[in-house]
Design a binder for these strands. Structure first.
Lengths: 194, 194
DNA sequence: GTCTATAAATTGATAGAC
DNA sequence: GTCTATCAATTTATAGAC
């Protein structure tokens, strides 16, 4: 018989987050019940509430920590050439997206299910990430290394293009990661007129 | 007092579809109840079932008719120069996306809530649309008018980039539609090496 | 920390009157 | 075609035992 009692707090906490992230990404926040999460984790529904005050907080924490991780992981080198910085950004964004596909998917799919205060917080973090790319583009224009009509729109367009890899990438598919980065870098370089 | 009885079938049918599309796009399919749709339409929940056998059929019909509309609306001119065809595609895709933002959003957001048979059908229609762009890119490469490393990936990348306008466009914003098309066409043209 | 049990509300869908 | 009323299942969240 399986365990029916006893504490496993050291693994249950992270497991709840991992499980919720996967199920939310696959079926949508509203479509996944706390009972489904609990069943996949291997606990009863009531046990979840020792880790999160409610379902909304679970979603907010997932999106919040994802955006924090993303911002912490990106390190620009303002001293390098703008084109080299852009290439690094392309490589970073694709790698991060493929390493955390569920979190990336969630963070732009479930914004609408956040309460206003949480929505504002996540949107602000996203704005900081976009500003990081926009700064590269503006420096590239200033240095004469890029030709860009509208840096703000180009930022959004490039991020949408790069994030799109999560929609079709499958491990072991036709193209490996380096090849994908190479192709997208060619597209991005052309788009900025370099 | 408001009407509490009587048939208004000629307007209720389309109204249910319009309302469901808007609410599904805003809050997500699973998050919207049949009662909420009915209330927004101005009927009681039971009345909806005179128009749709169930909630799933309502979603399927919305996605199906959107993809049909999209395919019907796009008319390529295989005799024209590849770059001119691509420019027309960019203009068309952006215009269609901004004219039907909810339908576009739904059609790539709620695929996961379709039953397998419905999912396969919608995905096949989407494949036909992608093939239309890919044909232009291949012709452009063959004619020496474009330099593209991978036409398939470039197709997906361009569509993701163009569809992204629905994420930030607001009527009466900083840029009008013609200007947006102009900017995105510049990005697309550069991306394909023209 | 986890369980069992349950409260209170909401869900998709149906039946039958008009 | 629409309404009212309702069923059966499911939902989030809580209370109290262990």
């Amino acid at each position: 018989m399986a365990r029916t009692q006893g504490s496993r707090a050291h693994i249950t906490g992270p497991l709840i987050r991992d499980t919720a992230r996967r199920l939310f990404a696959r079926h949508g926040y509203a479509a996944v019940s706390m009972r489904q999460i609990a069943a996949a984790v291997g606990v009863q529904a009531g046990a979840l509430y020792a880790y999160t005050p409610d379902k909304q907080a679970l979603l907010r924490d997932l999106l919040d920590s994802h955006m924090q991780d993303l911002l912490d992981a990106w390190r620009d080198d303002p001293g390098a050439a703008p084109l080299a910085r852009l290439e690094r950004f392309v490589r970073f964004h694709i790698a991060f997206s493929l390493d955390h596909p569920d979190a990336v998917f969630l963070s732009y799919m479930e914004l609408r299910n956040l309460e206003p205060a949480n929505f504002a917080r996540i949107t602000a973090l996203r704005g900081r990430y976009e500003a990081a790319l926009e700064a590269i583009l503006r420096d590239g224009v200033a240095a004469g290394a890029m030709r860009i009509e509208d840096p703000k729109l180009t930022t959004l367009a490039l991020i949408a293009m790069l994030t799109g890899v999560t929609n079709w990438y499958r491990e072991g598919g036709r193209l490996d990661r380096d090849r994908i980065v190479q192709i997208y870098w060619g597209l991005a370089r052309g788009a900025v007129g370099a």
